[in-house]
Design a protein around this nucleic acid. Structure first.
Lengths: 332, 332
DNA sequence: CTGAAAGCGCTAACAT
DNA sequence: ATGTTAGCGCTTTCAG
């Protein structure tokens, strides 16, 4: 009933075949420059012949660093996160680190398990886009990670009271840019669909918009969730009760999709019958021939900042908790 | 310069705090039923207090099974794969297994490294959607995995000469269903955009279509790639030279997107000015108010088959190499 | 139900 | 440039 892996290949096997001690074989794989060229070749040949691969478990148990960074996001099928994950992986590779990427599928329970797993795998740092965007989110593992001294970089979703550094989008600035754009368009009536009421991101984006628009415009704000379906339902409800605004504002890419779906289902044509300003690029819009003004974030920049903050903390070049805030770009 | 994790918490720490030996603590986490209720509670409390998490590296080094299945796909931002990954993870969890999910980003080089990593982590099985769909794909790690005796389940992309089992879509049947639909529509002229010429999936889907249509219809087949941009470019070229066919056939979801993009860019309206039949659901079409006839695969079924095939191989209930073929459903 | 001893495969520190 | 020794944190015998 059990799975004893039939053939285990270890350093010893390779060592025998290559007529060296296993330490030398070990070096051949971790510090090849310290091994004689001829010996090295003999070892690598032997290793290939028997199909040897370094046993990560054993290595991590002994080595000081696993050279691995854990990445956790709530939804890898959201391009915002999947692209970030890709860019971070590339940046990590360039610095000699691997990544271990997990999707918490928006579940707190999964998130906790994943964090435990990552700790168990001995990652050197964790980059974490948290499930919840509640301002007061404070899951048990926060304390745990703090105790263990594992560097944590929060991504995208800011939690003010957490003991960790983070890389965030400048949400108020996003809002301000949205507001300015709408002022230029001389809009009279705006409907904002945003994330949960208790999410800082949701609040900040809305308050940025209101800073600019408050006195000029009739604004309705709906706090729904950063998910397509919630935004869709909120928009459907809204359209039943109210007239079509001059502009909808979708506070992230999923919300924008929900708004579009609801409007199109009602027979409203984008640009003709309704206008939308999106925070984040609207997925697939260009494919289907639509174009919406939006604020786009430089995902490459965010990824670079996150990985490099992680590396600096790992190497203890950075002791204080600090945040990096990346501004979005208006794209018309 | 180095990252000595400041506070390591081990079995010993918990053992001291709970006044038991470390073996008992170990049992508390791996076979809690073998530990006295009272003792168990004391141990778990102690563990929580100091933030203890099982060290996976150490566990995997000693244990016979890591209770982990590795999953590798070429593109997690493709919903086909990201949903499969999600369903497989759920199914694995229900059987007491974790998953380790990697994205090879369509690179052979990454793929090889990921396989090495997975072997190194001691996964019990690997479910692999290969980068290439070349019929004769035969990377070095095939042999290696065979030597090591690690169960491998190929996913979606069939490689006839490989020594592994797999779960596949019935591609010829897909094609036949497409063909029948088009016959019913009494089409005269069809343009098929498919994957690479040397891909079995691409070939089978096309040949299925042709089995039904050959004698009735004017068919043009373009072998491009299973990627949006290649399909887009192929369609753009095609539209320069030829008239609009009665139907385009997109041989996977990415290709369908490419066709749509090219047509819409040329000012052609879906359903009005051009028709498309897609193998795979067309991502986001419903959001933007479009509906294309398509063949959809039951991803839940595929995921279930893949995980259960893996489990049966792990438990040696299954010794021969066999394949499971899942049929797609027509959706109008 | 609990414990003592051994060792998984690897690498750091110290030889040589 | 290579080898020797010790031990990472855990689980698996085997004893009690």
């Amino acid at each position: 009933m059990a799975n004893y892996r039939i053939n285990k290949v270890t350093l010893d096997n390779v060592a025998q075949l290559a007529n060296v001690s296993k330490v030398t074989v070990s070096r051949a794989f971790s510090q090849p420059e310290k091994v004689n060229q001829t010996t090295l070749k003999r070892i690598l040949d032997a290793a290939e012949k028997v199909g040897y691969v370094v046993n990560t478990a054993a290595r991590n148990l002994r080595a000081k660093s696993s050279k691995t960074i854990g990445i956790v996001t709530p939804d890898l099928s959201n391009p915002f996160f999947s692209h970030l994950a890709k860019f971070m992986t590339e940046e990590a590779h360039q610095n000699g680190y691997d990544t271990l990427i997990f999707d918490s599928y928006e579940s707190i329970h999964n998130e906790q398990n994943i964090i435990d797993k990552l700790i168990g795998y001995g990652v050197d740092a964790i980059i974490l886009a948290v499930v919840s965007s509640e301002i007061s989110y404070n899951p048990p593992y926060f304390k745990q990670l703090k105790i263990l001294g594992i560097p944590v970089i929060l991504l995208d979703r800011h939690i003010p009271d957490s003991p960790f550094s983070g890389v965030y989008i400048d949400n108020i600035d996003c809002g301000i840019q949205v507001g300015r754009y709408l002022v230029n368009q001389k809009v009279k009536k705006v409907t904002i669909i945003s994330g949960p009421k208790d999410s800082l991101v949701a609040q900040e984006r809305v308050s940025g918009i209101k800073m600019i628009l408050e006195n000029y415009t009739n604004i309705e704000t709906i706090f729904a969730d950063f998910l397509m379906n919630e935004a869709y339902l909120a928009t459907v409800e809204h359209l039943k009760k109210a007239n079509i605004p001059d502009y909808f504002v979708g506070c992230n890419n999923q919300i924008s999709l929900g708004i579009i779906k609801a409007c199109i289902e009602k027979g409203l044509m984008p640009q003709k019958d309704f206008c939308l300003f999106s925070i984040d690029e609207v997925s697939h819009a260009n494919i289907y021939g639509f174009k919406f003004p939006c604020i786009v974030s430089d995902l490459n920049e965010i990824a670079w900042q996150a990985i490099n903050m992680a590396l600096r903390r790992i190497n203890e070049e950075l002791s204080t908790i600090g945040n990096v805030v990346v501004r979005g770009q208006l794209q018309i």
